[in-house]
Amino acid sequence: MNTVDEHTEHGHHAHGAEEPHIPKDSYFIKVALWLALLTALETSTYWIHLGGFATPALLIMMTIKFFMIIMIFMHLKFDNKLFSLMFYIGLGLAIFVYCVALSTFQFFAS
């Protein structure tokens, strides 16, 4: 009984020392090109006026960039899920408490 497999507890995918599979340089360069493109689109809203459409569009692009970086550059997609869990708890709590706090100031009403 002393060889109980612990890994299942954390949804771990592999045994002990096994390294996660990390893609090659070319893949990361491709991702960086996409990020650059998104940034270009974001900045273009400064010159091209989208009206009420701008804010949601910007927020969506921001979110995509955010997750591309943490999932791919920071390896969350390939790594042990425990890392994701730890980070997402912090991220989720931050979004939750600060949005609630701002809403008591009627921040989102305006």
Partner: peptide, 26 residues
């Protein structure tokens, strides 16, 4: 868990930093 202490610590720290920057951004 088969994962490195250092990396786990770093991710915990980054999770914590979310609340720091969240506060400043708010």
């Amino acid at each position: 868990t088969g994962i490195s202490n250092n990396k786990l610590a770093m991710w915990l720290f980054l999770g914590s930093e979310c609340l720091l920057f969240g506060g400043l951004i708010s």
